Amino acid sequence: MSWADAKAIIHNSIWKQNQGVVAILGMCPVLVMSNNIINGVSLGLATSLVMLVSGAAIAAIREFVPNELRSPIFILIIAALVTMVDLLMNSYVHELYVVLGIFIPLITTNCIVLARAEAFASKNSVAHSALDGFFMGIGLTIVLGILGAGRELLGKGTLLSGIDLVFGPAAKSWVIHVIPAEMHYQFLLAILPPGAFIGLGFLIAGKMALDRRADAKAKLAAKPAEPVGFSEGQSHC
Rank of each mutant, 00 (worst) to 15 (best):
E182H: 13
W174F: 06
P193I: 13
G139M: 11
L189E: 12
P180R: 04
P169D: 10
A196R: 10
G162M: 05
V178T: 07
A119D: 13
V175R: 11
T141E: 01
G162S: 08
W174K: 09
V175S: 01
A171H: 06
I146C: 09
A117S: 14
M183G: 02
L159F: 15
A171W: 10
I146E: 01
G168L: 14
A130K: 02
L153V: 11
G133Y: 14
S161V: 03
T158I: 04
F135Q: 04
L189Y: 06
P194T: 05
P194G: 06
H128W: 09
Y185G: 15
E118V: 15
V178S: 12
D164V: 06
D132E: 11
L160S: 01
L165Y: 12
K123D: 06
H128S: 11
L147N: 04
G157T: 02
L144Q: 10
A115Y: 15
M183Q: 07
F197E: 08
A115E: 12
A170Q: 11
A117C: 14
V175T: 10
G168P: 12
R116K: 08
S129P: 03
L147Q: 13
G150R: 11
L154Q: 04
W174H: 04
M136L: 14
F187W: 13
V175H: 08
F197R: 07
L160Q: 02
L153Y: 08
F187Y: 13
R151T: 14
I138V: 15
E152W: 02
A170C: 03
K156Q: 07
S161L: 14
A149L: 10
E118D: 04
L144K: 00
A127Y: 06
V175L: 11
M136E: 03
D132A: 09
P169E: 07
P193G: 12
G133P: 07
L165D: 00
D164L: 10
E182S: 13
S161Y: 15
F135V: 03
A181Q: 05
I191A: 15
I142A: 02
S129Y: 03
V113N: 01
T141H: 01
Q186F: 13
P194V: 02
H177W: 00
G137K: 03
V178L: 08
A119E: 10
Q186K: 13
N124H: 15
I112A: 10
A149S: 09
I176M: 04
V143W: 14
H177I: 02
H184A: 15
G133V: 14
A117P: 05
G195L: 05
A127R: 08
F167S: 03
F134H: 04
R116L: 09
L160I: 01
G157S: 07
I138G: 05
G162K: 08
G139A: 14
T141D: 05
L165W: 14
L147D: 03
L188A: 15
F187R: 07
I146A: 08
F135M: 11
L144V: 00
V113K: 09
A115R: 13
K123P: 00
H128R: 06
L154M: 11
G148H: 00
F197A: 14
